[in-house]
Amino acid sequence: MMPVRHTQLRSFHMVAKFGSFSKAADELNITQPTITAQIRELESQYNVRLFYRQRNNNRLTETGQQLYQQTLIMFSLEQRAKQLLQSNGALRSGKLHLGAVSPGAVMPLVDAFNTHYPGIDITIHTGGSEHIKNGVLNGELDMGMLAYREPNPDLVSLEITQQPVVLAVPNSHPLSRRRAIPIAALEDVPLVHREVGSTTRKIIEDALQVQRISPKCILEVNSREGVREASIYGIGISYVGQHEFQPHPNISLVHLNDLDTLSKSYLIYSKELENLPMIQAIIAILASIKASHTAAITV
């Protein structure tokens, strides 16, 4: 039996990724008949079916799903090898894929990196903590930002920043006229929660539990944008790390003057990539930013 050709696996991988033969062909800069023929050869060669072919949605069969998991690893390793070779230069060109659960937390780092290395194209991928962590582990992301320290032995975690949790209060609510309130003021107040597992939610819930405060938890939304929109519409009071608060004419920022627990952000990356010049450059920039903040505080 003939060995599997790299071009066959590449074509399969792209169709599986995009769910479209035409999009895969555009991505690989080859014709659609070519990519179709390569996948048919692969199926015929091993007497398997990889796709349920439909006009607008080519779904993977069970065999196709299993093969796609393998090609994800294969092309991730290939990309890492390419990145290793490219990174031996002076970082004059290349790409940085950065995952972030909170884009606002990494913007100072991104801004400083772009200033030092303007030739590097930066893409920020947003998502939940688990999605970001897995992206770093499988090589789809170079680095990631999480709201908690990741104990995974294959990852390194560095603290980026820390900030208090603040409230986004609808201007229709009496508390919007206060600059700061105690946690006890949230008794019987309509509260909009983040999803279970959110670090900021745990901080708020722990503080409420300690003081035996019972707000009216009327809504749960699994995104920062969603809880903000709920407050904008006057549904209830939401909460967020202070650097993530986005002003709007319908909401006011209100501090919790007796909440000492801070929300923290961590930069994670794979231990095996630690010596890459791009990773080292970001680590150095992060250290410089933190040193500048420390100097500003002590002046």
Rank of each mutant, 00 (worst) to 15 (best):
N152L: 08
G19D: 03
N114E: 13
C217H: 07
S11D: 08
L67M: 05
H116D: 09
T200N: 01
G135Y: 08
F75C: 11
V254T: 01
S44W: 12
D154N: 14
G135L: 12
T115F: 09
A105M: 09
G128F: 09
H193C: 15
P103V: 04
E220K: 04
V240R: 02
N29A: 13
A81K: 11
L98H: 06
Q242P: 05
V166E: 02
H248F: 01
Q32A: 12
Q280P: 11
A81F: 06
S176M: 02
N47K: 09
D258Y: 10
Q69I: 09
S129W: 07
M14T: 08
E244W: 05
V169Y: 04
I183P: 02
A105T: 06
V48F: 06
A112S: 14
L98F: 13
V240W: 00
E78V: 11
D142K: 01
S93V: 13
G128K: 00
G234Y: 00
Q69L: 14
E225P: 02
L109Y: 01
G104K: 10
S288K: 14
V210Q: 14
H6L: 11
I204V: 15
A168T: 03
T34D: 04
P249K: 07
P151H: 05
A207W: 02
G144I: 13
N152I: 10
G144Q: 05
E229N: 05
S22Y: 12
E272S: 15
L77M: 12
E78W: 11
A112F: 00
A25M: 02
K290H: 08
E150V: 15
V192A: 04
T63A: 10
A105Q: 02
F18L: 15
R40T: 15
M1I: 05
I120Q: 05
A185P: 02
L72P: 01
S11W: 03
H293S: 13
L273Y: 08
E272F: 04
N134V: 13
V196N: 09
Q65P: 01
R92E: 15
Q211E: 14
L141Y: 01
E220N: 07
V196F: 13
P118A: 07
P108V: 15
S44A: 10
I283P: 01
Y68D: 08
S198K: 06
P151T: 09
V169F: 05
V4P: 03
C217G: 08
R194F: 10
Q45V: 11
R10Q: 12
H255A: 12
